[in-house]
């Protein structure tokens, strides 16, 4: 029992989604044009969230990475 029973990215604290998206981004970075620019936007997203407490809305937080999405609210 010397080798860990899980992958290196899991040990570092990444989730499967973070791993899969990183790998996909890595594939997109190694493509020829024009496909490279066509797919460049696939890995990007952003949205705003806010929570409500006692009828008061908290300031909106912009989420543009999976890491922020997990910690925002």
């Amino acid at each position: 029992m010397t080798a860990p029973a899980t992958s290196f990215w899991r040990i570092a604290g990444m989730t499967y989604l973070q791993y899969a998206n990183r790998a996909a981004g890595s594939v997109r970075a190694g493509l020829k044009e024009p496909l490279k620019s066509k797919l460049a936007a696939q890995g990007q997203f952003s949205y705003k969230v806010s929570s409500w407490t006692n009828g008061e809305q908290s300031p909106k937080i912009e989420i543009d990475t999976l890491d922020k999405a997990g910690k925002a609210v």
Binding site: F8, I11, Y19, R22, A23, S26, G30
Partner: peptide, 9 residues
Amino acid sequence: AEAMIDMEV
């Protein structure tokens, strides 16, 4: 870990 994923891919 991210750099290692890039290397692997």
